[in-house]
Amino acid sequence: MADGPKPSSSVKLVLLGEAAVGKSSLVLRFVNNDFQENKEPTIGAAFLTQKCNLPTRTIKFEIWDTAGQERFASLAPMYYRNAQAALVVYDLTKPTSLVKAKHWVAELQRQASPGIVIALVGNKLDLTSDGEGVRSGGDGSGDADVAEGEESGDARKVTTLEAQSYAQEESLLFFETSAKTGYNVTEVFTAIANAIPETSLKTTRGSNQAQGRTGDEQQRVNLNANSAGAKDGCAC
């Protein structure tokens, strides 16, 4: 598959976000070009790989698709610790999921490797009336009314503007996608591939080994649901 001389390098990417926002669906769309209406929640995490061909080089994504449920939150550091890229996903029909996404961004900025490329992704664009996500939706910030959204056939609860300006402030890549239709999905990954600094690509080969060895002696990760959220860094 590696055709000829094009340099190829691995990029470790982690997906984070609230449960059911469509992380696994985005990955499945990207890796298998497939979508399932009733995807079961991820248990733990799934590891997938997919190549992304850029004009000058091939990027091989090593993707950690994590489970969004609270009880797995304390495991997240294990996956983002050595990641070069993160995809923080929210569901643009669910304002609380953007709040959660902001928490993840903050945590990544605090604890992940300094050069990490973060993309903020608003998923389920197909549920909005502006289908392709070209223009921004009306108002309906924060706590919009459910009935109102359904009336207009537009389930959007997070405006493009709100998310986009937040992304700009934090210097994140920003996309609105639909895993269901496939809209913008490859674009997200390509943009990430392009945003990875050349320098950090040099070191990627063999990084697996290093990661495998770290922290064998560490305490068992605590999955206690009560404390999961509060103990973010505990697995380090």
Binding site: S24, V27, L28, V31, N32, E40, P41, T42, I43, G44, A45, A46, F47, L48, T49, I63, D65, F72, L75, V221, L223
Partner: peptide, 19 residues
């Protein structure tokens, strides 16, 4: 979990599951 529930599917990568 693996063969009945549909939660873990083949063709969807490798899984790392606390259990």
């Amino acid at each position: 979990m693996l063969f009945e529930s549909g939660g873990i599917r083949s063709g969807e990568g490798e899984n790392w599951i606390p259990i």
